[in-house]
Design a protein around this nucleic acid. Sequence first.
DNA 1: TATGAATGAGATTTCATTCAT
DNA 2: GATGAATGAAATCTCATTCAT
Lengths: 200, 200, 200, 200
Amino acid sequence: MTDRSVKNIMSPRTKEQLEVIKTTKSQRIAEAALSLFASQGYEVTSISQIAREAGVSKGLIYNYFESKEHILKDIVSKVFESVWERLGLSQIDSLDDTAYRAFIVKSLDIVLDDLDHFRLYFAVFTQPMVISLLMDEIMAKSAPYLEMLQNYYTEKGYDDPALQMRYVGAVLDGIQMHIMLDPENFPVDGVKKLLVEQFT
Amino acid sequence: MTDRSVKNIMSPRTKEQLEVIKTTKSQRIAEAALSLFASQGYEVTSISQIAREAGVSKGLIYNYFESKEHILKDIVSKVFESVWERLGLSQIDSLDDTAYRAFIVKSLDIVLDDLDHFRLYFAVFTQPMVISLLMDEIMAKSAPYLEMLQNYYTEKGYDDPALQMRYVGAVLDGIQMHIMLDPENFPVDGVKKLLVEQFT
Amino acid sequence: MTDRSVKNIMSPRTKEQLEVIKTTKSQRIAEAALSLFASQGYEVTSISQIAREAGVSKGLIYNYFESKEHILKDIVSKVFESVWERLGLSQIDSLDDTAYRAFIVKSLDIVLDDLDHFRLYFAVFTQPMVISLLMDEIMAKSAPYLEMLQNYYTEKGYDDPALQMRYVGAVLDGIQMHIMLDPENFPVDGVKKLLVEQFT
Amino acid sequence: MTDRSVKNIMSPRTKEQLEVIKTTKSQRIAEAALSLFASQGYEVTSISQIAREAGVSKGLIYNYFESKEHILKDIVSKVFESVWERLGLSQIDSLDDTAYRAFIVKSLDIVLDDLDHFRLYFAVFTQPMVISLLMDEIMAKSAPYLEMLQNYYTEKGYDDPALQMRYVGAVLDGIQMHIMLDPENFPVDGVKKLLVEQFT
DNA sequence: TATGAATGAGATTTCATTCAT
DNA sequence: GATGAATGAAATCTCATTCAT
């Protein structure tokens, strides 16, 4: 009754309007789910809780996601994308020394920036159900970046670049996990310095 | 507990004998639970499954454990004990260079020796429910060994022994996690060598 | 505290006791389900309703039946057995004239004897979901009796015994269905006479 | 249907045109529903499925039909009309021998011509919910034709024309049902011959 | 007339836990 | 000590129907 044009009275929403509704709603649901999965765990979080947190009805969730499992898949998929992106690797083709050092430093910083993402990131690796569900997708997504790292080590003349890559990867994951476990007290800056000394 | 009916007249079980039976059954239950929790996850494992796997009735489980949660607590508690014990730290009072190097090497070896323990070990750290349930106990149990490590770094003249301890701890956890995730392919020996070079 | 023998105090139920409980309870559930399926239809009957009718909890039903579908399978399977048995064919190896005439007459009588069974019997044939679920089993169960009928027609010298068998089968089913639809008014006796005149 | 111009300014739709569109859409909905009800069953078919199959929105269905139940009522009502019409009885006032024989023969033929209609036709008789919903209407619609048949039997001098009518009706239904259940293999022609021999 | 997002009631199913035996 | 039948709360998911547009 406000300023809608005459010909739209009582006509169905346009495709654009529907698109907007769809993306905003499904984002709200996904955000609620991420936050709950991260703070409580996947199994323990119920659809009802997600609905309440997102401010929608239980039923609506199933308009946007096929199942609880698919909510998780969606979220994890986005989490992995955003992690690699924030590490600065998705924007470049190969690493030089500066980019490599930045990568190491960022690896620690992003944990504090978004603890929820990392809680999920590690849950994925240690919850057997989740792992079997998503490992393939994760690996496919990570492959190009891992290759980039290995190429860097090859260029730097390492005897066994693949070994070095696995080593550094494991070390970074360990530190990230510890930051996640104790974000208040973990000496991020000190460890950052040690890392840079030893690995660059 | 005194005179138990006709068929036990000749040899009523002593308290010790009862204890033996109890230990045996409760061990079987705990072992079944450990294996299932590790391979499937805690939430997803049902009491019925544990009972089936342990070859006992559902009801009996509640004779030995207060609740499903308590089974987990018990197991995790034992897992942590056994980890420190196997690392060789529970038998000594302080570290020298040899013991320290052995500790590093062992840290990797024990993962392959008992994958189930480590699956649970990491699940504990990343499953929010579990963590809040058990963090205190774990910390209390680990404290003396962490102190021992810190003392070693102090003696070796490190600027910031606490930092070093946290750093090494995180690195070892990271590598352990990666071994656990890919026990077949992870280059344990190569990484062991790199670790010894860098951290001893 | 009544007349239980000393050694049974606090001991688990014997296998026989458990067997009795199992069969009586699962019968109660199956009977409740049969009555509801017959009077309302399969889809429209809820597990809650069955539980209420049987006087048990919803959960218990799943101790005895894998799923709602399996309740139906079980019931239908038994219904078919009992129909053939009541028709007197499961007790003999081949038909003579007397047995054949008895078979025709009985075919009508049993409908009135147990309407619920026949409501289910016809529902099976016309509800697409049910049919696809059970057709194979039904056919396997009916095969020997159909063969017996065909043999009878062969012996009586029919040109096309298979055709005759299908014809009579269809006719009987049609009449059974009409009895079921209007058990009060359908002229069972009159039709019985007509049938015997024409088909024996 | 003339020149429908830029946005209808030239010729706003007349009431008849609206009616045409309505008929078309509601027919499409009804056809989709018939096909799905017949192949899957009423309960198991969802409004969404009907909408998808008919190529309209869920909402629109409720412009044309009060509820899911009313779709069924509408369809069944039409199915019964068309069956009597196709049997050739709705065009005449009374039966002679030729018309009667044609009626018998047609009774079988129309099943193969439109299996979906007959799937629904029999579902109506065996699904208790549906039956209670529609029996009255069906009976009212069938009454005149049943009377016509009874008159025919009276004229032919049958002792009990009502009995004969019920008998033949049941027989035909039985055969129709069997054709429906196994349209590929049922010996329609053979049975047709037997029927004509026995009942004309 | 036409759309499809949104709801909420209810369905099936699972499972930790209890308890009579 | 030992059993497993029984419960009931809660979880996931479906779907007829409504309603703003």
